[in-house]
Design a protein around this nucleic acid. Structure first.
Lengths: 337, 337
DNA sequence: ACTTAGCACTTGGACGTGTTGAGTGCTAAC
DNA sequence: GTTAGCACTCAACACGTCCAAGTGCTAAGT
């Protein structure tokens, strides 16, 4: 019983099952693939594969379907990534080159990826802990309300309305801005809260309350800005892929809305040799995503932020992985340029 | 055959059907409601209601369910809005009072409303065409890349990266900023593109290309900023409400991702005497939302922006309308304060 | 030591049939 | 205008039968 043929059989089962969505039997296999042996031999191989926990039969007289473990072996050892078609590559390039804003890039990327894979696409904003303070702006909205704007050197802008304990003049505010800017400009966002606490910005006693309030706002902004965010697209694709299993769509949508779970999931995934992260079915610890696989990869400087897709365990891994990888590469290029 | 009893029967049918999700027959009606007449009489009334197109029978030997027209009559003439419970009111107040940012307010509102109604909640950002330019900022990111930030007086901030045709010094940029600010400060966002075109900001010949580029960026920003945006939450609720009709969820999710459709829909709805807008089933022109009703109302200054929910035609209109109205009122109060 | 043909066995799904119960419309009496 | 009574319809359910796909096993073949 040759070892390599057994893997070949597993590959055939995975490919057929992904394609047909139906358990695949020994007869069907020898018909569709030229394995050079009879169905009886295949049956023996299948029994061995089942013994190893790589495939299961839903019921006695049905064909086999891959288990999570089977998919895992398939992804790790059997499948070869198939490159994208030329038109697909052109589409990626064309769409992403048209973007200007960071927000725009993120949005286009996630839409593109969801269309390319027919799955739900998610993208994590570049992690900003390493980003530095580029600019600070105070804008007087009303006598005691100041819009505090913090601009990071990677183009991300966040704002927050601070309510002051007393009135403040425009020019006093401008002076304060200069002081804050001198203290923080070029410093990493992540260190802002600590820095403000350790060495407060000096101020006339009359303005102490104001400075405190502004410091608090800036600290909060810096924290919020280095907090991670997620964008997603293609949730409608869920409906198609779970059409035969409509119960499961609710929990998945919930998990998607709960960004914390997604962030956790993305950050916990460990990359393989090629920098791709794949989590299959119950490999992830979230019950509501038990039937769901995630294919992701890092992008951008240091490949710290993740971009990827989320779909049913029964998915076309080679093609999906190719799409995710290609998009991430273009994306990194765009962000670097 | 009394006219008022016929409406009473319609009301009973709507209420029972919304509650049970099953066609309701004459016998069940007299059991659950004390109408004071026999089932045979109800049958006559039902026949009349069906004649009027207010209810239909899915098949010969089944009970009746309301038509869109039936729901319409129910909403317009029969139902009375039931006030929210005290705990619900407290929850609204507590949650919304904790918000600071405009973005934060929007997000909290939409989450709250989706939880309150168990439906998909949507909210349209306050329309910004009437907002005015509060502040402009140019931030040099790289030799020829300038982050253009436009701050409106309602607290909304938008940014865009402009790529200049030549290098520019920090101080020259500061001078330009002052010039732009002088020209645009306090002017309505909507008028910015035209204003820049009609009377361009003066510049030394050497900076002409730069000024053009910055003008274009600002014009684009102003246009994008007065463009309408939508936030939504609770899509997972769709799964529950369409559990017996899983085919329909896909198109609805698509429509939700296509913000243009939603904006169109919200803006086209006409308000009733109480300021509420209700669109029932096929009353809206979008095929994919044929089974979907929308309950919305305006909020904020002038009640121009809309907030509301979206759910199956078979929904509890009185309760839903009460929740939407209450949230919109609190929201208006918050934004005004 | 593998491979293969053959065969008995299992079983979900498709199909046909009968039964039931909720619900209707109609008619005739009140 | 209301009601009791009745014949009728039809989806839903429960069975029973049949069939095709698929399996595991055994014995023979290379």
């Amino acid at each position: 019983m040759s070892e390599v043929r057994r893997l070949e059989v597993l590959r055939a089962i995975v490919e057929d099952y992904v394609h047909s969505r139906e358990p695949v039997g020994s007869k069907a296999l020898v018909d569709r693939h030229s394995l050079g042996v009879s169905s009886a031999t295949i049956r023996n191989d299948m029994a061995a594969l089942e013994e190893d926990g790589l495939i299961v039969a839903p019921h006695t007289s049905a064909g086999r379907i891959p288990t999570d473990k089977g998919y895992r072996l398939f992804v790790d050892r059997i499948s070869d990534v198939k490159p994208l078609s030329a038109p697909e590559r052109r589409a990626i390039q064309k769409l992403l080159d048209g973007a200007d804003d960071l927000d725009d890039v993120m949005e286009r990327t996630v839409r593109l990826l969801s269309q390319l894979t027919n799955q739900v696409a998610v993208i994590q904003y570049p992690q900003l802990g390493a980003a530095k303070v580029r600019h600070i702006e105070f804008v007087l909205l009303a006598p005691r309300r100041v819009l505090v704007v913090l601009i990071a050197d990677n183009g991300k802008v966040d704002q927050h309305v601070a309510v002051l304990p007393m009135d403040v003049a425009e020019d006093a505010l401008a002076t304060l801005r200069t002081a804050f800017l001198a203290a923080l400009s070029g410093k990493p966002l992540a260190g802002v809260p600590h820095r403000l606490k350790a060495s407060p910005v000096p101020a006339e006693p009359a303005h102490a309350g104001i400075v405190d309030e502004l410091s608090a706002s800036l600290a909060q902004l810096a924290a919020a800005s280095s907090e991670e965010r997620i964008l997603m697209a293609g949730t409608a694709n869920l409906a198609r892929s779970t059409v035969d299993f409509p119960l499961s769509i609710g929990p998945i949508l919930e998990a998607l809305e709960e960004q914390v779970v997604l962030l956790q999931l993305l950050s916990e995934m460990h990359q393989d040799a090629h920098g791709m992260s794949v989590s299959i079915g119950r490999e992830n610890p979230y019950g509501s995503l038990a039937e769901t696989s995630v294919v992701a990869t890092g992008y951008g400087p240091g490949a710290t932020a993740k971009v990827g897709i989320l779909g049913p365990t029964r998915m076309d891994y080679p093609t999906t992985m190719a799409a995710v990888r290609a998009v991430a590469r273009y994306l990194s290029r765009i962000l670097a340029g």
